[in-house]
Amino acid sequence: MSVSSNTVHTVLGPVPAEELGVVAVHEALLSVVPGAEYAFDVTLDRAGIFETLAAKLRDFRAHGGGTVVDSTGMFHGRDVRLYEALSRATGVHLVASTGQGPEELVGGYFLTPQTNPPTPWPAEKFADLFTKEITEGMVVPRVERRGAAGLVAVAATREGMTATDESLFRGAARTALSAGVAVSLRHGDDAVHDLGVVLDEKLPADRVVVGGLDRRDAAESGAPLEVARRGAYVALDHVGTEDEAHLGDAERAALVGDLVSAGFGDRVLLSSGATGVAKGHAGNDLPYSHVLTTFVPRLKAQGLSDEDARRILVANPRALLSVR
């Protein structure tokens, strides 16, 4: 599938990057814990799921949103046909992702030893799996391939990167190099180390976004500034979450100000990590519009310029998601 350098893979096909508008870069549409669809107490009412998601996407658009990135990867409820219908019905561009992780949520097939003595699935096999979802289209299980994935999303084990996580990260980096998309990574216990793994594959830093940098442990370690210094994008993607594990919005806003003041306004991305519909877990029920309705006004009240706000909401995600 040949795509020019200023286009982005959406579920309805390539879209000129300048048409994305305001982008929510780290959200979830339908999020299903692997296996939950088989649980006796979990229902998947397709019509109800569609209506719930459509209402949330229309709200996002009504508040100025243009594009939502579903960064959940494979096997977590991703439903390409549903997303196609939602995009057509709401006018919101939807970018879906390939990728997997962390290890505890990787399917047993991908944990089956491939060698003797046993080793994790090699990075090259993950790269082949992910690359085909971009060059041939995302898999609709046992049916067909449809629209191309727009990025590779991988996550490391919270307590620290495992050998399987490392294979996933290296496979994601190789996919990004060959297919021209970006890598979205959620770090384990050391964001700078985990970024280093994908950079070790010679992937340019500006093709990487590190999520979860508004986790308190990451912020207090200085990771956001160091990630930006290395040239990768800093995603503060729990906007609206107020708990012990994360910065509150007041602290997030201060962190945005610090990054912009340090000259890294071109490396900041914002999102809420909202879950449109969650099955098998609690999810995060914030509206996709939360950043626009609540957090951006806070940033502007503390002095963020309109130009910097537009850079963070529009220009930065456009650059990240453009295929090149």
Results as ranks from 00 to 15, higher is better:
residue 127 A to N: 14
residue 179 A to T: 04
residue 155 A to E: 15
residue 95 V to F: 01
residue 118 P to F: 08
residue 190 D to Y: 07
residue 97 S to W: 07
residue 186 R to N: 14
residue 175 T to L: 01
residue 169 F to P: 11
residue 101 G to H: 01
residue 152 V to A: 01
residue 159 E to F: 10
residue 144 E to F: 07
residue 151 L to R: 03
residue 97 S to Q: 14
residue 188 G to A: 11
residue 167 S to I: 12
residue 176 A to Y: 05
residue 128 D to N: 05
residue 180 G to P: 11
residue 138 M to F: 03
residue 169 F to G: 11
residue 184 S to N: 15
residue 165 D to Y: 04
residue 128 D to Y: 02
residue 127 A to H: 10
residue 102 P to I: 10
residue 180 G to I: 10
residue 177 L to E: 11
residue 115 T to Q: 04
residue 126 F to W: 14
residue 187 H to S: 15
residue 99 G to H: 06
residue 192 V to Q: 06
residue 139 V to F: 00
residue 148 A to N: 07
residue 96 A to D: 03
residue 192 V to P: 10
residue 112 T to Y: 09
residue 102 P to Q: 12
residue 151 L to C: 08
residue 94 L to R: 03
residue 140 V to P: 00
residue 178 S to K: 10
residue 176 A to C: 15
residue 193 H to Q: 15
residue 164 T to L: 15
residue 190 D to M: 03
residue 149 A to T: 04
residue 120 P to D: 13
residue 152 V to R: 00
residue 143 V to C: 07
residue 139 V to N: 02
residue 117 P to T: 12
residue 104 E to C: 08
residue 138 M to Q: 08
residue 143 V to E: 14
residue 185 L to E: 15
residue 107 G to K: 08
residue 138 M to Y: 00
residue 161 M to K: 08
residue 101 G to P: 02
residue 179 A to D: 05
residue 157 T to C: 02
residue 177 L to H: 13
residue 191 A to Y: 12
residue 188 G to K: 13
residue 190 D to T: 13
residue 94 L to Q: 02
residue 133 E to W: 00
residue 113 P to N: 02
residue 141 P to V: 01
residue 178 S to N: 14
residue 118 P to W: 05
residue 134 I to S: 00
residue 109 Y to N: 02
residue 148 A to L: 02
residue 109 Y to G: 09
residue 192 V to G: 05
residue 143 V to H: 08
residue 131 T to I: 07
residue 120 P to M: 13
residue 168 L to N: 06
residue 183 V to S: 15
residue 161 M to H: 09
residue 111 L to H: 07
residue 190 D to R: 10
residue 126 F to S: 04
residue 164 T to P: 10
residue 99 G to V: 06
residue 169 F to S: 10
residue 99 G to T: 06
residue 172 A to W: 01
residue 151 L to N: 02
residue 116 N to Y: 12
residue 133 E to A: 01
residue 187 H to N: 10
residue 116 N to Q: 14
residue 179 A to H: 08
residue 172 A to T: 12
residue 144 E to P: 08
residue 145 R to D: 02
residue 152 V to I: 12
residue 136 E to G: 00
residue 110 F to G: 00
residue 143 V to Q: 14
residue 116 N to M: 12
residue 188 G to H: 15
residue 141 P to Y: 02
residue 185 L to F: 14
residue 105 L to K: 11
residue 190 D to I: 11
residue 167 S to W: 10
residue 150 G to P: 05
residue 119 T to L: 15
residue 103 E to Q: 15
residue 125 K to E: 13
residue 193 H to V: 05
residue 156 A to T: 14
residue 184 S to M: 10
residue 184 S to R: 13
residue 121 W to P: 09
residue 116 N to L: 14
residue 130 F to E: 04
residue 175 T to I: 06
residue 104 E to W: 13
residue 167 S to L: 09
